[in-house]
Amino acid sequence: MHPSFYMLEKELIEHKINTRLPLFAALCGLLLFVSLFFSGQAQLAFSSQIEVNGDMSDLHREFAQNLNSAIYFGTGLISLLLSMLYLSKTLRKERQEGSSMFWRSMPISNATTHGVKLGFGLVAIPAICALLVLFADCLLWLLNVSSEQVALMLEQPSLFYVLSNWIVFFGRMMVIALVLLPLATVTLAISQLVNSPLLVMFISSFAIKWLAIALFGFHGIKDFFYVITSLPMKVLTASNQFSALSEVSLLSLGIYALIGIGGYLLSLKLNRTDDVSLKTLFQ
């Protein structure tokens, strides 16, 4: 097996929140399922609600779509949150807990370390969270086959649908990973310099965009930040993930990609030794 496999396994053991939080969400989903499955009253309450609201034929389809979107949105949000939390602390944690010299004593290149950290943050975490979608769809499918009344409300007619929905969700998360990649490399770099990288990034992006407006009357930076920071959520919620990407200008994407490359090179340079400071960049 390739060393990267063991490195990913190590990240999984080290950052337990990435498995525990989805597990907790799954447990909550399971409890909800059990209460729906075994409570006749709940089923009744469901149908009563829809009767009051009117036209059943369109509404049940709409409800099913909304339910699916809610699962997508909730799981995507958990995945994004976990990814950013992981990326903002993974390199710093090793230094803080004093184990960096042990990891440094392993025959692993700096580029491989970065590749694994980015892979874990942007691929492995969404993959774990995608299991949540699979789990939720499986529960809804069970609900679907168990009750004709509830079946009208759900979009999980077969196991094939459940599996294909899972793959579609993971594919969407991979587009988000691509969109997040430049931000992830910048986070890795900044996390080595400061203790609260997300806060620093948030405050500095605010400062930069408002300074640009106040000093030069230039709104380009504000627009750029808006486009870039809203892109992951747009990809997550858009009916077609690629349409969200195509709405962004090539110039903005180009600048964003360049910032990502800069962040990657900066992070590599900072992580080469334990002398982490801005001064070491020029040595």
Binding site: F5, Y6, E9, E14, F102
Partner: peptide
């Protein structure tokens, strides 16, 4: 410098995997 959060078995498995 050993990672405190790992078990001995996990550490041996990791080292075998990368070294």
């Amino acid at each position: 410098v050993l990672p405190e959060w790992m078990s001995v078995r996990q550490l041996l498995r990791y080292t075998e995997g990368v070294h």
